[in-house]
Design a protein around this nucleic acid. Sequence first.
DNA 1: TAGTGGTCTAGACCACTTA
DNA 2: AAGTGGTCTAGACCACTAG
Lengths: 253, 253
Amino acid sequence: MTDGTKTTPIDRRSFEPPYAQLARSIRARIGRGEYRPGDRLPSEAELCSAFGVSPMTVRRAVAELVREDVVVTEHGRGTFVKAPQIATATFDLADLMRHLANPEIVAHILEARIVSAGRRAADKLAVKEGDHVISIKRLLLHGEEPVFYHSEYLVFDPTRPLVEAELATTALQDLFSGASGAGLKYGRLTLHASSFTEKEAAQLGEAPGTPAWVLEHLFFDFDDRPESWGRFVGRADRLSFTTTVGIAEPAGG
Amino acid sequence: MTDGTKTTPIDRRSFEPPYAQLARSIRARIGRGEYRPGDRLPSEAELCSAFGVSPMTVRRAVAELVREDVVVTEHGRGTFVKAPQIATATFDLADLMRHLANPEIVAHILEARIVSAGRRAADKLAVKEGDHVISIKRLLLHGEEPVFYHSEYLVFDPTRPLVEAELATTALQDLFSGASGAGLKYGRLTLHASSFTEKEAAQLGEAPGTPAWVLEHLFFDFDDRPESWGRFVGRADRLSFTTTVGIAEPAGG
DNA sequence: TAGTGGTCTAGACCACTTA
DNA sequence: AAGTGGTCTAGACCACTAG
């Protein structure tokens, strides 16, 4: 560094690769406040000579910090430390998964039959209202206690293999990890804050109007045709989504 | 490729760098179903010779697809196409930002004064119950219409510069982009599905019990001390979070 | 013009998997 | 042993920014 502050050297015998050590070292200096929001980091050339690594290695370390939203690079000017921002936070369904991946939770099929598509299902699945679709209702149980209600509609097409796979999916893990999705190209997920309908409340043994999460999913095949549409519904107060912006871990390294 | 299928060659005069062209090309092949979930991609060496680029360039392209959760690499085995997974979806606050970054929306300060910390605020801010803290209440208005209510508590410490910066923050943009956060190291954000309290409902002109989003935020300084704790509250039915898993865009390239 | 990040090359060595 | 991804080197040229 140009300021003469000691830098932790790279340990080439470590299991941790140099780019990761370097990223951790810079992250720690920011975390200790040695570089403050708005400050410019040493240039890549300086970092190269300070740590004795090649440019590509430095770039990889910096790229990692950029992904973490801890610094921002400006072409021709330098790399600058960012203040933690609410705006760029992301929440991931891992929180939901921790909740549901519990092996004690099982998916119980309440109903699986052919029905006439209602207006909304027909719209989502790009079929005509009244056309046959497959309806599957599941209850996700933790022991005796229902925790999520799942309602799903599948396009009724004997030439498509999705249905069998879906019906076989009683293990919740598969439902989420896409085991039945080998014929699917992409899906759109929407997270709503809502409250239980009468029907949902009855299934879950809750009061209608209780705050609820709704995770809606719509999957498409490789011809961009909708294949399935459904929603998970569960009590709001048992689940929240948490994330961190800025440098989460206490300063070290 | 080994199967003899035509590959789009790299255009070196394009504004789009080779690694991006290559990533797009592979993504398109997956999107067209030429590589299906579970299939192995050509090895990096094969991609190098097929596209006439160096190993690092191939790796960067593949790394991009890994980040997108479209493929997974397995050391010593190969790179494999993944089925779209619910489990790995992430939602980002950009949706909320689009909602709030509207220049017509302004933050109106309802109240800013020194109060005694209640139990919850004291706990979050690591002060004693009854200690002085600064309370700020804001109403986020779209024209005449209130859309979000914001309640925030700041540690009362004249040696800390945060307070002035926070009070000056009437522009909502700053509140989110961390303009007042130059002295902050990190923050924890939590997203709840909930419903309006009496007080919130009154402020927003809604009925108590209406479904609502709550975005809670807790920020720490460079000594890992809590600095501010607060929450945004808004109607649930005006906002949802959407994301995509798998290959979103129609096949091309 | 000098300094910065952005990209790429053409190899190298290693660790892991499979046969 | 052969093939795969994981990492790194030591440069190169370019585009952008600033004085």
